[in-house]
């Protein structure tokens, strides 16, 4: 498994894609839809990494190795999840900067801990739809990516709408004052747990689908 992760780092993921996490700097824009900052990773890194892997015949290479097919999937899901976590970590830094330099807040959800928690949930949901669908073929990325992005957008949109229209939701998720932390820390914790759970589930389903593919 470690060897496969090493393979992902050396051969599959071009170091350039670590830099997409810097799109989190968009969080510094005042009055904006902050979930969009998290989508650049899905627009740029995911499609490029996967199409590049296909162009390089990564699957053909992996099946030659003495590894389980499910571990090939596990390594890819793990490495993509790691990039998502990197993205969230960088986002956390910009959230902190944002709170420090423009504490006025946002019409939509503020850049705060709850935002990070919701972002993790959205990534988890993306993973849950994207990976199992992708591994039904192991090479077609178009539709799985569109479905994943659609789920991300719809759920992200619903959260934004709720923050604006339902005061009870806003009370939990919105705000960037120290007192808001009390309600937001559990949201972040739930986000972390959901991200882990959904991604694990995504891996299990993806591995099962890939097992059935004739290569």
């Amino acid at each position: 498994m470690n060897n496969l992760l090493y393979k992902e780092l050396r051969l599959v993921i071009h170091p350039f894609y670590y830099l997409t996490s810097l799109f989190a700097a968009l969080i510094l824009i005042p009055y904006w839809v902050y979930f969009v900052a998290l989508m650049y990773f899905l627009f740029i890194a995911i499609p490029n990494i996967f199409t590049n892997a296909k162009a390089q015949n990564d699957t053909g290479f992996s099946v030659l190795l003495p590894v389980k097919k499910s571990d090939v999937v596990k390594a890819r899901v793990t490495s993509m999840a790691a990039l998502e976590i990197l993205q969230m970590a960088v986002a956390a830094i910009f959230v902190a900067i944002s709170v420090a330099i423009s504490p006025k807040g946002n019409v939509l959800i503020d850049a705060n801990l709850a935002y990070l928690g919701c972002g993790l949930l959205l990534y988890g949901l993306f993973n849950l739809f994207f990976f199992p669908m992708y591994y039904k073929t192991g090479h077609k990325i178009g539709i799985p990516l569109m479905v994943g992005l659609t789920v991300f957008t719809i759920i992200g949109g619903i959260i934004e709408v709720l923050v604006v229209t339902v005061p009870a939701v806003a009370k939990v998720l919105d705000g960037n004052t120290p007192s808001a932390l009390v309600s937001q820390i559990p949201v972040l914790a739930a986000g972390i747990a959901l991200f882990a759970g959904l991604t694990w589930l995504a891996y299990r389903m993806a591995a099962k689908n890939f097992e059935a593919v004739d290569l």
Partner: peptide
């Protein structure tokens, strides 16, 4: 060892790097 045609993967990667990955598995 098995192969289907020649090396048709990682065409743009240095052989040294490919080998460095492969050797770890055996």
């Amino acid at each position: 060892g098995f192969m289907f045609g020649g090396v048709d993967y990682y065409a743009k990667t240095k052989i040294r790097t490919i080998t460095d990955v492969v050797r770890r598995f055996y």
